[in-house]
């Protein structure tokens, strides 16, 4: 639902880096977004196309890599991936302990971009 604001932030950062690097055109942008985020890839691209149409990032393709939700078991320290949308109980696959701490899955990151 907040794709528009997030997309504006992505465009601002991309244009700032483009300016500093003498870029003529942005071809693609690699993003890393955690699985905990509810962003819809398709809408991020649509908003991006709309916001960027008068900029050098026009027609740039957003490549979104989803980073999994990873928990670390409080008991044995084992790290494991969790499909947060499907599981009811989070449990360590090694020792079956139920208490664990979130270590990744909340990323909102621009990795790099292809430009000419």
């Amino acid at each position: 639902m907040h794709e528009l604001q997030v997309t504006q932030r992505i465009l601002d950062i991309v244009l700032r880096h483009a300016k500093g690097n003498g870029v003529n055109k942005v071809i693609s942008i690699q993003l890393k977004i955690g699985e905990l985020s509810d962003l819809e890839d398709e809408w991020v691209q649509k908003y991006f196309d709309y916001l960027s149409k008068h900029t050098i990032a026009k027609n740039a393709k957003l490549k979104i890599e989803r980073t999994p939700v990873v928990m670390k078991c409080d008991e044995c320290g084992h790290s494991f991936e969790v499909n947060i949308k499907e599981v009811k109980d989070i449990q360590c696959p090694e020792c079956t302990h139920k208490k664990s701490t979130l270590i990744s899955g909340r990323e909102y990151y621009i990795k790099d971009m292809e430009v000419i």
Partner: peptide, 9 residues
């Protein structure tokens, strides 16, 4: 070219 951005949105 590839430009590294490495920035949190």
């Amino acid at each position: 070219r590839l430009i590294e951005v490495k920035e949190d949105i």
